[in-house]
Design a protein around this nucleic acid. Structure first.
Lengths: 342, 342
DNA sequence: ACCTCACTGTGAATCGGTTCATATACGATG
DNA sequence: CATCGTATATGAACCGATTCACAGTGAGGT
């Protein structure tokens, strides 16, 4: 015998009928049990049990107007950086009995818009978004409709929007400065499109470091734009790099996944790291220290990032927007210095 | 000036009033534009624009009864194995214009139940679940209420439930058999609780391999139960292992994250891999090949797993349930053989 | 001039809950 | 014994969309 499937979900009035009470009473049992006499309550609970009744969230929400759910849109759920952030979000929201719907935009503005709309239609309390484009007008529109919006991993350009970010200019600067101090004079930057703010900012930081060292960015920095910010992107970028006339001696990667792809390719091509090519990543993901060549990387407070973002989302609607910026930290390992970190 | 926030979301009747038509007409513009004259349609669209109207999903869904959303509950979103699976799910659902809500249960049945209920209340079309306990009665209950349920990474014990899984007994067996062939006679297994099916099955496979080799499992296999299936769990388990009287010569880890923690700890304690301790992981995550000691691991078709699960979820409600099982594959690297995989 | 039919648009019923003004019963109080 | 307050239960209005039976309009056919 296969499991029988119910014809229709039981509704509150089915429960009321079975328990021989009014629908109002059933609703009271659900939401204010103390106002119902124990005898009636038990009868209603029995009926709920018998019918396997699950309240219809849409109906409840339609009447109540709001739900304890928030949405989060990140660029890529397969990137440990974003899942760590998501983890921070979840940890904070759980404290207030909120739940999170997680989605990834794949750096595609259309997908981002689609999820944003889905969340809005379902009446989420707020959304946390890592924007996939520099244009945030659509987010302001959502904000104006009364939905909390927190920019993730990207400072807000306007005061009215809350944001939680890490200083990416500083991060880019410290990474490149580190490579310059090691004597590199021609540094590649495997970067994503500048429409993604993090990419633009880290580039700015890189240029600043080079300029501060008295070098000409046009000569000392080689930007390679990769199609996707993951290991495959890193592989493609690295191949492009190795085919150049004047191959750089160091590579700064927009994130550790990209660096992973770079390391993989360099090894396949027989280029030693860091002597043939120094590599610096970004994010300091959990496995960065355990790679064949432990990876120098820029660490960001991922969990904090998500946690604080959720904090801001839960703030009262009339609280002023807040822009939080964390500072990154360079973690030096073998992939740049050649020294065993030990 | 801060961004003004609207008092109340515009509703379809606000639009109707402004456009001087009935609510039915507005609804038609939204859902069957061809039945409305161009002039009226434009007037309505103008009003929608002016009011920044976004239809209320709850109301729509309440009336329509169903939505194009599915839920997925995995053990841990921070584990690349599950995010790769999630990726497969998303890729399939996107084809049918479905969206996914992703949540992680943290191996906690209470959290799993909470998300399950949340999804159900919101009327998802179906859910894909990696169960955090061997008891799946609650999932059958959900199924009986007419919601599609697909077991993820775990074969269904009953015919009426669809499932997509990998043969974990075979996976456990091939991993341990590999270690036995290398001459190890005392093998540790850093495992999670047997209430998680994958853990129980891989254990069964391990025992089978040992028995087939003519050894006594009670002596040749040392099971260490770790508190969480991640790097921290691997670290704790490894420390426990190293403190034993007869320290095993090889360790089989329940997943690559755990193996990562094991490798980290072994290095910190000065134990060489594989000569002091051979290590085999499970999942073959993206970075397994790039670790300081490239990790021997059992590969699973992650993306396929998610993709097919989503496939089954989208199957017509009256289609028979289906149980799909994939075969795992051992990927041998340095962490067990000591040989450079080249 | 009359009948059909396609095309548009209307407005009320409906989905399943929550909420609140109102009704009833009953013990306590003066 | 009349009055009051408390505890409990009721049922109708409402949230915002979809849907459908029905009505009005005008072109085309006879």
């Amino acid at each position: 015998m296969s499991t029988p499937v119910q014809r229709r979900r039981a509704s509150i009035s089915d429960v009321a009928r079975l328990a021989e009470v009014s629908v109002g009473t059933v609703s009271n049992v659900l939401n204010r049990p103390d106002r119902v006499s124990p005898a009636t309550r038990d009868r209603v609970l029995g009926a709920i049990e018998d019918l396997a009744f699950v309240p219809n969230g849409s109906a409840r929400q339609l009447r109540a107007g709001t739900i304890t759910t928030a949405g989060a849109i990140v660029l890529d759920v397969a990137n440990p950086f974003f899942t760590d952030v998501a983890r921070g979000i979840e940890d904070r929201l759980t404290q207030d009995d909120f739940t999170v719907m997680l989605a990834s935009s794949d750096e595609d503005p259309a997908r981002e818009a689609r999820y944003l709309r889905l969340f809005e239609e379902h009446g989420v309390q707020g959304v946390m978004v890592v924007p996939s484009t520099s244009d945030i007008e659509h987010l302001l529109t959502v904000r104006r409709r009364g939905i909390a919006v927190v920019l993730l991993d990207r400072p807000s350009p306007v005061e009215s929007l809350s944001s939680v970010a890490v200083d990416d200019v500083a991060g880019g600067e410290m990474a490149v400065q580190h490579l310059l101090e090691l004597g590199h004079e021609r540094i590649a930057f495997l970067n994503g499109p500048h429409s993604i703010r993090q990419c633009a900012d880290r580039w700015t930081g890189a240029v600043r470091a080079v300029t501060a060292a008295g070098l000409d960015p046009a000569d000392a920095l080689v930007e390679v734009t990769i199609p996707s910010l993951n290991a495959d992107g890193g592989e493609q970028g690295t191949r492009e790099l190795l085919a150049m006339d004047r191959v750089p001696t160091a590579t700064f990667c927009i994130n550790d996944l990209t660096a992973l792809g770079a390391l993989r390719t360099l090894r396949a091509e027989g280029v030693s790291v860091p002597h043939g090519m120094a590599v610096v990543g970004y994010d300091d993901v959990s496995f960065a220290a355990e790679l064949s060549t432990p990876l120098t990387s820029v660490r960001q407070p991922t969990h904090q990032l998500g946690f604080r973002a959720a904090d801001l989302l839960l703030a009262p609607a009339d609280a002023p927007a807040e822009q939080i910026t964390f500072q990154p930290e360079l973690v030096v390992r073998t992939s740049s210095t050649g020294l065993d970190p030990a």
